[in-house]
Every structure is written in structure tokens, then in C-alpha cells.
Design a protein around this nucleic acid. Structure first.
Length: 201
DNA sequence: CAAACGATTTTCT
DNA sequence: GAAAATCGTTTGG
């Protein structure tokens, strides 16, 4: 089933980030469907999180999407090259989001290989937020897109990730966030080869 | 209007 | 392991 909007509008962004592990992200652009199981996520708790673009409820043209009601995509360009895909959570005016960092490819592998200009299926295809977005065809133009479809959605296919297989860690690339860089806001499935190689603190 | 800066990935040494 | 690639957003003059 497609995760309902009520899944996203809940208030605990960290809990949502953890629950997204094992769910299936699907994109369907121009009739081309690609999907993959989410194996790595990070929570960004807006107002009190220095690692978030919306720290202290800072509203700009870019972050405005994070202030929407939960259940839409927040996509932005990083380092001028990479499109990073996030899921907006909580109610309107609370800028919480979950960064999807890595997935394990399921359907549309041929298309993902083509989009990434790769020959063979290897973890590097979708391990890492920029790589995953490229493989799924996600672009900054999709920021604000609903996660109820028909272009992007997340499904629950009944897979439960055992608590013992969920690793809590520090986030990647946010050392500038001082004490908030120490928060255990990154979650991934232990031993899954598609988890990114990015290192926290 | 000019300048600095990334929630990263790839390539080269 | 180090460095480049590359550009929209944000901030400062």
C-alpha cells in the first residue's frame, strides 16, 4: 500500500526516519517506473537543528517547501551538481524532513543504469543521496511534489526491519552543525551493501 | 551586483 | 587520500 499522508504528518521526525527503512520508494516519470527499498535515512529537525537549512525557522525561497504539511518532496541542489531528495514531515509551518540517503534497487534497474551511465549493477548505483536521486530521475523541479503519486510515492510492501538490524549513527557531511552534528539522526540497515560509504563523526 | 558556500561524487595521484 | 567539478541560494557591499 502507498503510505498515506497521515504517515508523514506525525510529529516525531526521528521516528518517521527510522520507520522509512524497509519501505519502497517509487518514481514514475514519463511512463518509466523505478523503485527501490530504502536502506538509509537521516532526520532533519528544522527549528532546533543547526544542520537543517530551516534552522531557527529560517524561511527562504528554497526552504519554503519544508514548511508545507508533511507528505511532499523537498529536493534541492547540493554542490551545484547533486539533487538531494527529502520527505517533508510534521504539520504545516514546522520544517521537519527526512533525507533519503540510499536504496536497494528493485524495479527499473536498466533505466537506473542508463541514467547513471553505468554498465553493471553495483551498490554505487544508488548508495548515497546524490547517486540515488540521479538513478531515480529525481530533479529539483520535483520539490513540492506530492508523495501520494502519480509521479513519486513510497509503499509499504509488508517488510519489517528487525530492530536489531537498525543502526543509529551520526549524520554525514554536517560537521559544521556543531553539537547537532553529534545527534544520532542517521539510520541504516545493518549489513546492507547499498548503504552509502559516507562517514559521520 | 559580486562573492562565498555547500545534507556529494568522481577522478586522479 | 586529496582535489576537482559546478551552480543555485544566500549574504554582503
Amino acid at each position: 500500500m502507498i503510505l498515506p499522508q497521515s504517515f508523514y504528518t506525525r510529529k516525531d521526525v526521528v521516528k518517521i526516519a527510522k520507520e522509512l527503512l524497509g519501505k519502497v520508494l517509487v518514481t514514475n516519470f514519463d511512463g518509466i517506473l523505478t523503485s527501490g527499498m530504502i536502506v538509509e535515512t537521516e532526520a532533519y529537525a528544522g527549528e532546533f537543528d543547526k544542520a537543517s537549512h530551516a534552522y531557527r525557522n529560517r524561511r527562504t525561497a528554497r526552504t519554503e517547501t519544508m514548511f508545507k504539511e508533511g507528505g511532499v518532496a523537498y529536493v534541492y541542489l547540493c554542490y551545484g551538481i547533486h539533487h538531494l531528495f527529502n520527505v517533508v514531515t510534521h504539520m504545516a509551518d514546522v520544517p521537519h524532513a527526512v533525507l533519503i540517503r540510499a536504496v536497494e534497487p528493485l524495479e527499473g534497474v536498466e533505466e537506473m543504469l542508463h541514467r547513471r551511465k553505468k554498465e553493471r549493477l553495483q551498490p554505487v548505483l544508488t548508495a548515497g543521496p546524490g547517486a540515488m536521486s540521479a538513478a531515480f530521475g529525481i530533479h529539483t523541479r520535483h520539490t513540492g511534489t506530492s508523495l501520494q503519486g502519480p509521479d513519486i510515492w513510497i509503499e509499504d510492501r509488508g517488510l519489517k526491519v528487525p530492530a536489531k538490524d537498525i543502526v543509529h549513527a551520526t549524520r554525514v557531511g554536517v560537521a559544521y552543525a556543531a553539537e547537532d552534528a553529534l545527534a544520532l539522526y542517521r539510520f541504516y540497515i545493518k549489513g546492507n551493501p547499498y548503504v552509502s560509504k559516507g562517514k559521520g563523526l
